[in-house]
Amino acid sequence: MTRFGYTLMTEQSGPRELVRYAQQAEDIGFDFEVSSDHYSPWLVSQGHAPYAWSVLGAVAHATSRVDLMTYVTCPTMRYHPAVVAQKSATIQELSEGRFTLGLGAGESLNEHVVGEGWPGVDQRQDMLVEAIEIIRALHTGDLVTYDGAYFRVDSARVWDAPEGGVPLGVAVSGGSSLSKFAPLGDHMIAVQPEADLVTGWDQERQDATAPQGGSRKIGQVPISWDPDKDAAIARAHDQFRWFGGGWAVNADLPTPAGFEAASQFVRPEDVASSIPCGPDLDELAEGVRPFLDAGFTDVAIVQIGDEKQQQFLDEVAGPLLEKLRAL
């Protein structure tokens, strides 16, 4: 049965609000919660970017049942992989085993801030391979020294390493990333509902003799609920029109101003054609169906806009969750 999650969208809400939403989403019955990990919002109108790991620590303490996950963390530029290994192990301990570390090759928007430039995609993927190797090694609790092409680790140990480590989800988008990351990750993350990614992930893991079974395929769907459909479309256009740029564009633009410029000609009707908007819960639920048809096991919902988040949770999330499970 498909599991449905709630997205803690750090780009559109402050830290205290996110913790409150996380508590309520658990009470409503969501199966898991994912948190973005950004240094900047996509667009200025979103207006937020708290530190995801502080939020996750508070959420781990404030919840007791719901699974938690980063969607996703880049462990190669802004963070050294040894640091990611330590903080993900800590969240796993705080949450008592409910945490999955979602990893990806990153976006310039968040990673350029440390002043180390922005590598090409092939190099970013090679860096992520090394980072995963380091994180896996450190999660054993053993003393680790690592000398790679991009990263060095000198006599490091994660002293509070959870038993069994931390499950790793890895973001993929095509053949190259599948061949590199399926043998290294436990679970697949993708933002496009493509069945070829699901079958390709399983095939690559089988060919690499990776452990079989229990591999989740985790997607994410934005929606814009509002009693007024026009208001829902306007809000989605104002805060989420960057979404249509695609991974290749979204990975390389460095600032919210860049996303403003790149999306200036995107029309409200363009956004409405790709993001379910309005009060019709059946229509919103149907927006998830392509992921179900593609074979995804987990789908996280993003309700666009902090200004409607509380009303969404109070009035809509429960009935919507029922409709999603009925699919």
Rank of each mutant, 00 (worst) to 15 (best):
R3C: 03
G5T: 07
Y6E: 02
T7F: 15
Q12L: 02
G14A: 12
E17F: 12
E17C: 00
V19W: 01
V19R: 07
E33F: 02
S36C: 00
S40Y: 12
S54P: 00
S54R: 02
S54G: 14
V55D: 01
C74W: 00
R78Q: 09
V83M: 15
V83A: 12
Q86Y: 10
R98G: 12
T100D: 06
S108R: 04
S108W: 00
S108M: 01
V114T: 14
G115L: 07
W118A: 02
V121I: 14
R124G: 04
L128W: 07
V129T: 15
A131C: 14
H139L: 13
T140E: 09
A149E: 15
R152Q: 15
V153Q: 00
D154S: 14
E163W: 01
V170K: 00
G174M: 05
P183T: 06
H187T: 06
D196E: 11
D202T: 13
Q203H: 13
A208Y: 13
Q212P: 09
G219I: 08
D230H: 13
Q239I: 06
A251C: 09
T255M: 09
P256I: 06
F259I: 10
E260I: 12
R267M: 15
P268E: 11
D280L: 12
G287R: 03
F291E: 07
T297L: 12
D298M: 10
I301F: 07
V302D: 03
D306L: 06
E307P: 01
Q309R: 13
F312L: 05
P319D: 07
L324W: 03
